[in-house]
Nucleic acid binder design. Sequence first.
DNA 1: CATTAAATAT
DNA 2: GATATTTAAT
Length: 295
Amino acid sequence: MDTDVSSSCSSNSNSLIVDNNDFIDMRVASSSSTKGTKSTAKEFQGVVRILLVDYDLVFLHVMLRMFKMFNYYEAVGVRGGSAGLKLLREKPCYFDLVMTAVYMPGMSGHELFRRIKEEFITLPVILVSSDVDSIKASKGMSNVVGHFLHKPITCSDVEKMWQYVHKSKVDHVDKQTGSSVEQDSPHNQEKNRNISGSTSSDDEGNSRVESRKRKESQKGQPSDNKRNSTRTNKTQRVVWTERLHTHFLNAIESLGVDYAVPKKILEFMKVPGLTRENVASHLQVLLPTYTFHFW
DNA sequence: CATTAAATAT
DNA sequence: GATATTTAAT
């Protein structure tokens, strides 16, 4: 029963199942001077985390393989819609994109899509099917339906998939005050300069570099930079992406607003490198929101 | 340790 | 110049 699939790519440590560990959204804040950076697909250093859902194991393997061809993807494949949904619930903000087959035994792709839109509104979903009709059907089911791809999926499909994620982010930008959303023509990708220096509210589009923040950070090291970073490694700023923020909110909800103090929140989040101060300050930022609620 | 205010960095 | 995040002070 072992198909030859395994032989072809088993050794290649495909991520088939999640080993939950780090779900961090932090990046090393580099000192100024990275202004003129261009952001093309290659410069796009952010990792796009993709949840791949299909019942067909072969397809899963093939897709995972394709994703591996691009260093900016990090794909996890699961079999079945409910499995996918479960995973999403466990890590509400882990994935940047869901790519699911339309037809599957059990929970269908459509169903999965619907529930995703209910629970994780901003999470982009790509439906995949070899059947054009099913695609049309899904188009009618929601106005927010994201994107469709026909089987077979090509490499170029995969390659540009991140763009959809980014576009999706841009579309959802509206919460932050006075952020001007710019139309994002397929042509001018270069136009987007979402690099380390940006303060815009879009998250996944930004470069997310370090996945784990070591606590090796000690201030008393003036001219001694340990690794990477063109310039001196300044203080590492935590970037509160939408993801991280949601984790944060989740923690608060789980703990209960009354018990939601920095320390507990921090413990709950279990984000390596994140400090209590980080949480505290972020909590401070959110305070106005709540007070507004009360009044 | 929590909270708040001031200081920086982006 | 405004915000987001850090640092210092309470």
